[in-house]
Design a protein around this nucleic acid. Structure first.
Lengths: 221, 221
DNA sequence: AACAACTCTGAAACTTGTTCTAGATTGTGG
DNA sequence: CCACAATCTAGAACAAGTTTCAGAGTTGTT
């Protein structure tokens, strides 16, 4: 049963015309110091709970309590559990990117450098698999309402990969083919993590898949 | 904050040693005719609701009512919403595989045949984007408790892709490298669908990504 | 200091996935 | 056909994400 006509009246939402318009969001006023501190406490509480039991262990009431904040306030800062976890991922990615800039991958070919980078990130995630579970499940489960936040995470991931590819990219920036290859690497990265987290692939398989997909990089630079 | 030691006492669950042991499940007795019919009504109701509004529109109470079955019964047949949607995906994949066997892809190279196959599937999904949303979100959100069911879906997907690659695969079956490449194609397939469904990629980008990743196939056969 | 506007708190309410229970129905071996 | 075991139904109950709201606290302005 495929309900073709049924869906027709809705499918405009999926027309794909929506492009990536940056949709200037109201640019909320900068946070006060106390607010900055609250936000940080919330993110830290989230990380703590996520480390303990993954996506399911991050319960909004508990996050609020652990952060010393009312439930309503938590929702004012992060409008949903998925927003919260995606923001946490952004936070962690920032760390990672900083670390990577200090000690960049040293391999010879662009593909090897990308693989080295992702394998290093994978090793970091293995240290806190439950945190990885919370972040990655949230990221892939996110719907349209979290688009901007997810876009920021993906943007940072792309930046990390492009950094790893390095100067092999022309002065005009990456070509469409290169961008497609980078997207494929990211797709593989996320989906491989998911299969690992849900116990359907071994660590060895994830490593193998990362190395396999990185071969695409050499094909386009 | 990375909570390394915190997670340590849990991380055995992620040790990756778990391999893919087929874990013979009790093999429940065959269903009676009425039960078969109930199961089908449930799956049809699920498809109907999914077509209307995607993952969120599939509400267990509504599925039960639409299928003319008590809520408890629904849960006896499918122990969670994710189980239900993954089973629905299995159902649809069966259809697709049957169709594909009747009209197999006609391109020349294995990579082109795989791409042709996936693009055809993508076109089918575009006809019911909300159904695609429900199925794919459930599949990637599924946790360890749904492993067997997800494995069956992935297994069918793999079979479809191997069929498309065709006789270029040696008589001993695919090599580990080939299997890794196929996994990467599947990863890309699912993750690209997710980005399309959440409005972060255009149809053109998804197509491009599928074609890009399929180049890996020619590299390994 | 006084005021307005905004933010935060605490608690209840609402939604939807999931579980549980008591009684009705069905299917089956004797 | 009967009795019993499994299944199904209706509905309450529970869990966690989300919303709402009245009142208390903060902040910035004059």
């Amino acid at each position: 049963m495929l309900c073709g006509p049924e869906a027709a009246k809705h499918s405009d939402a999926f027309s794909g015309v929506g492009q990536m318009a940056a949709e200037v969001r109201p640019a909320s006023p900068p946070l006060t110091r106390r607010q900055e501190a609250r936000r940080r406490r919330i993110l830290d509480a989230t990380t703590l709970l996520a480390c303990r039991g993954g996506f399911d262990a991050v319960q909004m009431r508990e996050v609020a309590e652990e952060a010393g904040v009312a439930l309503g306030t938590l929702y004012r800062y992060f409008p949903s559990k998925v927003h919260l976890l995606v923001a946490t991922m952004q936070d962690q990615l920032e760390h990672l990117h900083t670390t990577l800039r200090k000690r960049p991958p040293a391999s010879d070919s662009p593909a090897e450098r990308v693989a080295e980078t992702l394998l290093r990130a994978f090793r970091a995630l293995q240290r806190d698999p439950y945190l990885a579970d919370a972040m990655v499940r949230a990221l892939t489960f996110a719907d349209r309402g979290v688009r901007d936040e997810v876009d920021r995470v993906i943007g940072r991931t792309t930046a990390i990969i492009l950094d790893a590819i390095g100067p092999s990219i022309g002065p005009q920036g990456p070509t469409p083919e290169q961008l497609s290859a980078v997207r494929v690497v990211e797709h593989t990265w996320h989906a491989a993590l998911i299969t690992w987290l849900s116990g359907r692939a071994t660590i060895a398989q994830v490593k193998s898949d990362i190395e396999t997909v990185c071969r695409l990089i050499d094909l386009t630079v």
